[in-house]
Amino acid sequence: MKNYEIKRVNFKVFRFNVNLDKSPYYESYTLEVSQDDVVLDILNRIKWEKDGSFSYRRSCRHGICGSCAIKVNNKPVLSCKERVFDLIKIFGYELVFEPQDIKYAIKDMVVDKDRFWTKYNNVKPYLITNIETHPKEETVVTQEEAQMLEESDYCIQCGNCFYSCPAVQANVDFLGPAALLKAFRFNTDVRDNAKIERLNIVNEERSGVWDCVKCYECAEACPKELTPIDKITKLHNQIFEENLAKDNVATRHAVGFKDSIIKHGFLDEGELVRYSEGNVGVLKHLPEALHMLKNGKLIMPWQMPKSKNLDEVKKLVDISSTVKFK
């Protein structure tokens, strides 16, 4: 066949059996790969041709069951969707296969996803509504109403976003992108009655939307291209729209930008910290503030720069604002 390219690749594969091995190790397999091969083909060949004990999750082979997610050179992939040639383009001829989170590996590529599912279940990931047992009419959802979900119903719970989220790794309480996306999915469903209940869950400090670090790892990780962080932003918006925002450091941190822009055009950094933390809380930043002052990194209130045409900015804020903070 013309132009049918074959490449030799070294696959360095994470191996571990929680019941047998003291610690994980990496096994190397050199295989010839064609342009049609996806990562799942390689996983299959390792099991069928090299070592029958090799374990990984797989089911549909069509990007819909979400079982076969792993990491290749730290890039989260859905094995059945990711072409090996595309990975070679990024990482070269040594590809490292690892489970989504090596700390929770059970056997080879198989991880214990308990943490993922617990968080997922926390946001009431189902339709909550009062329906008649024997309805006389169909509950019709219009096309426009369905579009409000912004495809968040396409999530296949593969966990790629969750296992690449640095906030999940640093903060055991954080719900993570998949659960938050699911909260958005049902909150925007016109048939659902539990929007406020879910918003109260995702509005909690430490676990909810306020602890997202805005790194966009989830946007890159999602094989269905659902950009979970955009849905997290929309949950923030819903919290303000429904007047549920509590008066705390996180909410004031968001609102403070508007106050500064009205006054200066620019953000007043010092005032934002004072406003967000409060007059007492701000004192904990004193050591850094002194360092900054000494190094010429802190300006005095009267030195605050102002944008040109500030009247125009004030007018735009006046006519374009869509929410208020109590």
Binding site: F257, I261, F266, L267, S307, F325
Partner: peptide, 14 residues
Amino acid sequence: EATCCGASHLQDFD
């Protein structure tokens, strides 16, 4: 004439 970009925080609010 430029103002603050909102730093992804104003975006959360409005």
